[in-house]
Design a protein around this nucleic acid. Structure first.
Lengths: 218, 218
DNA sequence: TCAATAGTGTCTCTGAGACATTATCTG
DNA sequence: CAGATAATGTCTCAGAGACACTATTGA
C-alpha cells in the first residue's frame, strides 16, 4: 500500500480504532412479549453483565460489517440465516474500557422458533426498558433498535414475519401489540393491514367461538 | 491497555480499519436549487474527482465522529457552526484504493449564506443525480443524504432553516420544492405547514401585487 | 340455548389535494 | 382601471379511530 495523503503519510501511519459490530436481535418470548437476545459472558476473559452478540470486524479477509454481524449471531448465540440492518455507530470514547472501540450497531427481528435451542438468552423489553443492565452501552443500542422496530411495524404488517407464514388477524394483532408496545383496536387494525395481506382460504379450527380465517403477507 | 479477550489477545493485536467521516452538506444555490458542497482536490497527493468534505477519525485525543465531521467541514470547505447527523457506514472493502477504510457518512443542511466566501464548490443535485461523478462512493452518500433530507422536509416546515429566520409562505414553499424535488400546491402547502409557523406581523413590501405576510418557525 | 370469538356497517374527525373565488397591493 | 400576487372558502377523497351490531362456532 504505497499511497500517501496530503501530508505524505500512509494510512497505516495514523492510529486506528477497533471496530466492533453488535446486533440487537429482537424476538417474541413464549408469552408473545417482545424480548432481545443476549448472551451471558462467563469465560475467564469475559465476565460481567450480559451483552448483545457482537464481535470485532475482521479487516484481513475484507470482511464487511454485514458479514461480521452474521458471524456474531452465529458464534455468540447460534442464530443463522438472518439479515441484520445497520442502525448507527456508537462512538463514545469511554464506551469500552479496553480502548477506543467504535460499535456499528445492527438490528434484526426474528421469529421465536429460530431462537429455540440456541445459546441465546431472552431479556424481556417491557415498555422499552430491560430488567437488568447490559454491558457497555448496549442498553442504548436496544433503545434505538426498539424505535427502529416500531417504525417498521407502524408502516407495514409484520415486516419481519414474526407471526409465521400463516396467521389469523388476531394473532397478527398480538405481534403488532408486542412490538409497537400498545393495545390496538381490532377493527382499525384489520383495515390498516388488509392491503398487505392475502387470504389463504383456510380457517383456524378447533377453538371456541367462530373459527378465524388465516392470511399470508402479500 | 492490559485487557485481553477470550483468546488472550489484546485489542491492538488485531488488524484495524481506518475510519473516515464524510459529510454530505446540502444547501441551496443562488437560484434556489438543491446542491451539495464538494471540494476540488488539486494537491500533489490528492488529485482526481471532487469529493465530499471528509477526514480520518483521530483516535489519539479521543475524537468523536461528530468532532471529526465538524473538523472536516472546517478544514476542507471552511464551514463552521453546524450539527451534522450520522447517516450510515459505507464499508465496501474496495471503496478506497488506499486500503480498508470505513466511512461514517454524515449529513447536514445549511443556508446559502453560510457557504458564501468558503472554499466549497456547489454541485447541483438535479432530481437526485449529480452533473459529474464524485470520488470514492460519494455519489451513493449523496443519494442517501437526499433521501434523509426529503424525509425530514416532508415531516416539518424547513427543519434546517434554509429559508432564514423570517420568510413568506411562498419563499418557504420554494425551499420545500427544492428539497423535496417536486412542485407543491400553495393552498395545500400552507395548511400543511401552518401549525409549525408563527406570524411575525410584518409584510414583505415593495413588490408588485399584494404584500405577503412573513412567518417564523415555531 | 349461552358464551365466546370473528367480522363488518357506519359515524366522526382529520388532513391531503384541488378548484375557484376573494383580497390587496403596484403602476 | 388592469395586472399581479396573497389568501381562503369549499368540495372531495382517504384513512384512522371508535362504537355497535351481526355471524358462526363449541358446549
Amino acid at each position: 500500500m504505497g499511497w500517501t495523503d496530503e501530508h505524505g503519510r500512509r494510512l497505516t501511519d495514523y492510529d486506528r480504532p477497533s471496530v466492533a459490530v453488535d446486533v440487537a436481535l429482537l424476538t417474541l418470548d413464549a408469552g408473545g412479549r417482545l424480548a432481545v437476545v443476549v448472551h451471558e459472558r462467563t469465560g475467564a476473559h469475559a465476565r460481567g453483565l450480559p451483552a448483545l452478540p457482537g464481535t470485532f470486524l475482521h479487516v484481513d479477509g475484507a470482511e464487511t460489517l454485514r458479514d461480521a454481524a452474521l458471524r456474531a449471531l452465529r458464534d455468540k448465540v447460534g442464530v443463522t440465516g438472518r439479515e441484520p440492518e445497520q442502525l448507527r455507530v456508537f462512538d463514545d470514547p469511554a464506551r469500552d474500557p479496553r480502548g477506543r472501540v467504535l460499535s456499528v450497531a445492527h438490528v434484526d427481528l426474528v421469529g421465536h422458533d429460530r431462537i429455540e435451542g440456541t445459546t441465546g438468552v431472552l431479556a424481556p423489553v417491557e415498555d422499552g426498558t430491560l430488567p437488568y443492565p447490559l454491558a457497555y452501552d448496549h442498553d442504548l443500542v436496544v433503545a434505538h433498535a426498539l424505535r427502529w422496530a416500531r417504525d417498521r411495524y407502524a408502516a407495514a404488517p409484520d415486516p419481519a414475519g414474526l407471526a409465521g407464514g400463516e396467521f389469523t388477524l388476531l394473532e397478527l394483532q398480538g405481534v403488532h401489540e408486542a412490538v409497537e408496545g400498545r393495545r390496538l383496536q381490532k377493527d382499525t387494525f384489520r383495515r390498516r393491514v388488509a392491503d398487505g395481506l392475502v387470504e389463504t382460504g383456510h380457517v383456524r379450527a378447533g377453538t371456541v367461538g367462530k373459527p378465524a380465517r388465516t392470511f399470508r403477507r402479500r
